[in-house]
Nucleic acid binder design. Structure first.
Length: 451
RNA sequence: CGGGGUAUAGCGCAGCCUGGUAGCGCGGAAGUUUUGGGUACUUCAGGUCGCAGGUUCGAAUCCUGCUGCCCCGACCA
């Protein structure tokens, strides 16, 4: 919980016009709402409003990773080339990997992913099957030197990534670990108001033979996708799902893989033809997560082994599980906006409610705004108080642009009747309420949203 | 990495063809006005015209080289 923010003292560089480089709506709105600033091709600074959203997203990711039994750590952004030579990927990775040299001419690299490093950490400490299963994750900046970065933070070169890595004794146990992350991902995206559809996927340079991409449908998505419409009605796993219950997880994963879903690379026209026409969904999608089960691809060459119950050495089974929080910020905007700006889901909104004082300096509006802000704050809500000396129109436009779920508009006209206006951003519904009722309405809504 | 653009004030642009030392809108500051959906007017501040050479009495403008950025394609969380 933070102190209520007075907009006159905040740093929110709103742009009235759209910078010309921004092609897609999320990029345009992130620049206009003062969330990010481009510093280089595909490299962005996160301004306060953008950072708040990013932090809300990583908070949800952490909560769901922890719930599923993963343990957070943090690995460095700069890695040694030697580590990557062990797995054979130093030469295999190609120009996407940014290679650098330190002052001693040692070959280093800016990490594009961390399988090698986590395997090195694992093998240094873990010797016994009794320490398994283990799942370690971190949330860290990564760099992939994309040939052509575009679409703002949707396809940037530097990006924030949550990576989890699982270690198990057997393939069966590894499958359970995979399912844990699968279910955790369904919950994570659902909490952000997204339906992410798990689709059969290529495993690419990460490797392995079991892999799903989690894709949300959006017109501006980069991938062409094909799936059954039932996915849009499947319920997300409940909060009390038992992650130790392998059969229960298998059941959930079973449901979410029971219908056809594939990206264009993996598309099987014959299989799709079997889907009833009325259920066919052919759309564009944004990849927001990707999970891999790759067995011993890294543990074998890097000798990550433990002693089994019979005293013999066993090469551990591994998987890795990624979510891109920085990309998710853009994906959430692609999925939630209108002509006036962003419409944030309540769980990730940078502030929960904005209180606009429509006539700064008016004793009545100033007083009521101060009281509203204090009461909302005391109720545990994150409040933005627009106390700038601006025209009402400018305030409406700003609040709509930055997409806070609720607005309270306090002006002399309404106050003459003892009323303020409560506006819900998502629907545009407005209500004239007494100030105390306005607070109650929004606090109730927050409780219902489980914020 | 191929193809195509573009670079002039914080943002969006004009000026370049036909060389004469830079302008408009938005934004910012001051003021008057206005006060419920980006108000109107006045004044002000802000630019080594991407960088380096060259041509010329004189270059934002013409020529050469370089760099950044953007778009299309192939590649990708």
């Amino acid at each position: 919980m933070e102190a209520p923010m007075r907009l006159s003292r905040y740093f929110l560089p709103i742009l009235r016009e759209t910078p010309k480089e921004a092609e897609i709506v999320s990029h345009r709105l992130m620049l206009r709402a003062g969330m990010i600033r481009q510093e280089s091709a595909g490299i962005y600074a996160w301004l306060p409003l953008g950072l708040k959203v990013l932090n809300n997203i990583t908070r949800i990711i952490r909560e769901e990773q922890n719930r599923a039994g993963a343990i957070e750590c943090l690995m460095p952004v700069i890695q040694s080339a030697d580590l990557w030579r062990e797995s054979g990927r130093y030469d295999a990775y190609g120009k996407e990997m940014l290679r650098i040299k330190d002052r001693h001419e040692r070959e280093m690299l800016f990490g594009p992913t961390n399988e090698e490093m986590i395997t090195e950490i694992f093998r240094a400490y873990v010797r016994s099957y009794k320490d398994l299963p283990l799942n370690l994750y971190h949330i860290q900046w990564k760099f992939r030197d994309e040939v052509r970065p575009r679409f703002g933070v949707m396809r940037s070169r530097e990006f924030l990534m949550k990576d989890a890595y699982s270690f198990d004794l057997t393939a069966e146990a590894g499958r359970h670990s995979y399912n844990r992350m699968f279910v955790a991902y369904l919950r994570t995206f659902a909490r952000m108001g997204l339906t992410a559809i798990p689709m059969a996927a290529e495993s690419g340079p990460i490797g392995g033979n079991l892999s799903h991409e989690f894709i949300i449908l959006a017109d501006t998505g980069e991938s062409e996708v094909f799936c059954h419409k039932d996915f849009l009605t499947f319920p997300p796993p409940p909060a009390d799902v038992d992650f130790d219950d392998a059969a229960a997880l298998e059941g959930i994963v079973g449901q979410w893989t029971s219908r056809y879903a594939a990206t264009s690379e993996m598309h099987d026209a014959n299989a799709f033809a079997a889907v009833p026409d009325a259920a066919k969904v052919s759309a564009r999608g944004i990849e927001v997560g990707h999970i891999f089960y790759f067995g011993t691809k890294y543990s074998e060459p890097m000798k990550a082994v433990v002693n089994g119950p019979d005293g013999k050495e066993v090469v551990v089974q591994m998987g890795s599980y990624g979510i891109g929080p920085s990309r998710l910020v853009a994906a959430l905007i692609e999925a939630g906006h209108d002509d006036n700006g962003i419409v944030w889901p309540e769980s990730v909104a940078p502030f929960y409610v904005g209180v606009a004082d429509l006539k700064i300096g008016d004793a009545a509006t100033d007083k009521v705004c101060g009281e509203l802000v204090e009461q909302l704050e005391n109720a545990g809500l994150d409040v933005l108080h627009d106390d700038r000396d601006k025209r009402p129109g400018a305030k409406f436009a700003t609040l709509d642009l930055i997409g806070l779920p609720w607005q309270i508009l306090v002006g002399p006209k309404g106050l003459a009747e003892g009323r303020v206006e409560v506006k819900r951003r998502k629907t545009g519904e407005r209500e004239l309420l007494a100030p105390a009722d306005a607070v109650a309405r929004i606090v109730d809504a927050a409780k219902q949203a489980g914020a």
